[in-house]
Design a protein around this nucleic acid. Structure first.
Ligand SMILES: [Mn+2]
Ligand SMILES: [Mn+2]
Length: 555
DNA sequence: ACCTCACACGCAGCA
DNA sequence: GCTAGCTGGG
DNA sequence: TGCTGCGTGTGACCCAGCTAG
């Protein structure tokens, strides 16, 4: 039941955002930014509204006659102040290429002398043709009665939003979604002094990283120099644990990977050496193998095993080095002579074809008299339970964690030291938990208090209190706790890969089952959970599904 | 939804 | 006329 | 042949209206 918004909603929101920028960033605004805010404040209301309407849209050029906003009234009256203050430009004769796309096909063809001939062209070709022709009398006729405007300051407006949100993925829409009640945020405390950027340089660097990210998408796969040029523009020497560093590393890895695909292996090795984060070392080991430099490849694996950054790195180094040694008759690492990967127990089911293989398996078990209940939960169960238990830890007012009201998680949630920073709070929660009833007490209350509010671990649509209650009745306290501990060791990498299905046999107990359709296999993170379950006597297995042959036809 | 990210699927390359 | 895809809007 | 890696597709608020084809 969405709430109604006041007519002035978009201006209200922008004023909140601008005010926030002024208070939080007063010391680091550049002249363009300061002037924007100052000039905007001096505009009449209708002009403020219009320019925000325009800035919130995607293009920069508009036909005035096509603009209609009842809350603004006559557009023409709002324009002079905007032109005066440098928020719009009113070109006397706009470039054809810029404005032809603003017309519909019908409008373009209506008065064209050769409309019959142009009729067959597709829209992009029609644009090109008309721009190329640049027919004086046609254009004059087309532009008669038309006034064009170009909105300026788009970039500054976008930068303000980035400065407010700390990213470019959120926007003014987030205000609306919240106010409509479509998104509920936890009302955490925002430390008045905390902000995502501490200098104009950081702002510019983050902006630049987004620009590079965009350019990556427009770079031809085989354009070696294009990729290398972009790599060279990525800011270096960013602080090791800043968000900007992470983004810069990801861009470097993407480019290095592309160079690898192109086949410039030595170049790729060089680029990977400039990356600190996984999977840089894994990629290097693979490249050395391709180059048949087996001992170098093995020594990279050695490095990884000595100082792994993630469990996935360790898993890679163990399996890859063992394979390499076996295939090429080299001495394996002594500590990994015996392959530690035990395969989980697998059962096969032949089921009638359905859309979703997981759903088919759930329905199969639900039909079995030996099954009490069966749910397709994947990551939602354990993530959700942990998120509910640690609610107050996640939203604790740690300095710098929250800087605007639209965060569904603290800014440092995936940092390696997230838990360490909140250790005493985490310990307090787990100190209260001795058995299932303790978990139920906390979770059940939390569910009532917080239902629907966003939390990085809780997917409200996938769970019900009833499912949670049943899961708690079946899964041992020790199992819950040991799974939570593993998740907390690495929130980024250990909160996925859970088995698809929770099956509750009528006889008691439970099973975590990963469903595999034909041609699907356990992923790496799923394997790691299975190994972990085996080590901790947590009942688990794989269900391999074959589709039943359809009656009559089909293979 | 912040640093998109889960997951399944299907093809190709390799001992 | 119909519809898929996009944009704008709350 | 079986194993493995790699690349890709598909979700992500929801609706109305316009446009191209
Ligand atoms: Mn799954
Ligand atoms: Mn599965």
């Amino acid at each position: 039941m969405p709430a109604e918004l006041p007519e002035s909603y978009y201006l209200d929101n922008v004023l909140i955002l601008f005010r926030h920028i002024e208070t939080v960033y007063g010391d680091i605004l550049d002249p363009t930014q300061s002037r924007f805010l100052q000039d905007f404040a001096g505009l009449p209301a209708a002009s403020q509204r219009l320019v925000i309407r325009l800035l919130n849209r995607s293009g920069e050029r508009f036909r005035c006659g096509k603009l209609e906003y009842p809350e603004i009234g006559p557009i023409a009256a709002a324009l002079p102040a905007l032109e005066q203050a440098g928020f719009i430009e009113i070109p006397t004769r706009p470039a054809l290429a810029e404005v032809i796309p603003l017309f519909t096909r019908a409008e373009l063809l209506k008065h064209h002398p050769q409309r019959k001939k142009l009729q067959s062209l597709k829209r992009p070709a029609l644009n090109d043709q008309l721009i190329h022709d640049d027919d004086e009398t046609y254009v004059r006729q087309l532009f008669a009665q038309e006034q064009f405007i170009r909105v300026l300051q788009q970039e500054t407006y976008q930068i303000f939003q980035m400065m407010f949100f700390g990213n470019r993925n959120q926007s003014m829409t987030d205000f609306v979604l919240r106010d409509l009640g479509l998104q509920q945020y936890e009302p955490y405390c925002i430390d008045a002094s905390s902000r995502p950027y501490t200098s104009q340089q950081e702002v510019q660097q983050h902006w630049q990283l987004y620009q590079i990210q965009q350019q990556l998408e427009h770079t031809e796969a085989a354009d070696l120099n294009g990729w290398l040029d972009l790599f060279a523009t990525i800011p270096q020497h960013l602080p090791r644990h800043s968000p900007l560093f992470g983004k810069s590393e990801r861009l470097r890895l993407v480019i290095a990977r592309q160079i690898e695909r192109i086949g410039e292996l030595d170049l790729a090795l060089n680029l990977y050496s400039q990356c600190r984060l996984p999977p840089a070392r894994e990629r290097k080991a693979r490249i050395y193998q391709r180059q048949r430099r087996f001992s170098t490849s093995l020594s990279i694996c050695r490095d990884i095993l000595d100082q792994p950054l993630e469990e996935s790195e360790t898993q890679f180094a163990i399996e890859f080095s063992a394979r390499l040694a076996r295939r090429h008759n080299l001495p394996p690492f002594p500590e990994h002579k015996i392959s530690p990967t035990k395969k989980p127990q697998t059962i096969e089911l032949t089921l009638p074809k359905s859309d979703q293989v997981e759903q088919a398996v759930v329905e199969h078990y639900q039909r079995q008299p030996g099954t009490h209940a069966c749910y397709y939960l994947e990551n939602s169960l354990f993530k959700g339970m942990l998120g509910l238990l640690l609610w107050d830890v996640i939203f604790a007012p740690v300095p710098g964690a929250f800087y605007h009201p639209f965060q569904y998680r603290p800014s440092d949630f995936y940092d390696f030291d997230f838990i360490a920073k909140r250790k005493s709070l985490v310990d307090q929660v787990f100190a209260q938990i001795h058995d299932i009833v303790d978990i139920w007490q906390i979770v059940q209350v939390r569910w009532q208090q917080k239902a629907g509010r966003m939390n990085p671990l809780v997917n409200w649509n996938a769970l019900t209190l009833d499912i949670i209650e049943q899961a708690l009745q079946r899964i041992d306290t020790a199992h819950w706790l040991v799974i939570f501990q593993r998740m907390l060791r690495d929130l980024r990498n250990h909160c996925s890969g859970f088995p698809d299905v929770l099956q509750l046999p009528a006889a008691g107990g439970y099973q975590l089952l990963e469903v595999k359709g034909p041609g699907d296999r356990l992923q790496k993170n799923q394997q790691r959970w299975m190994q972990f379950f085996a080590a901790h006597d947590i009942p688990h297995g794989v269900v391999k599904v074959c589709w039943q042959a359809e009656d009559g036809s089909k293979t």
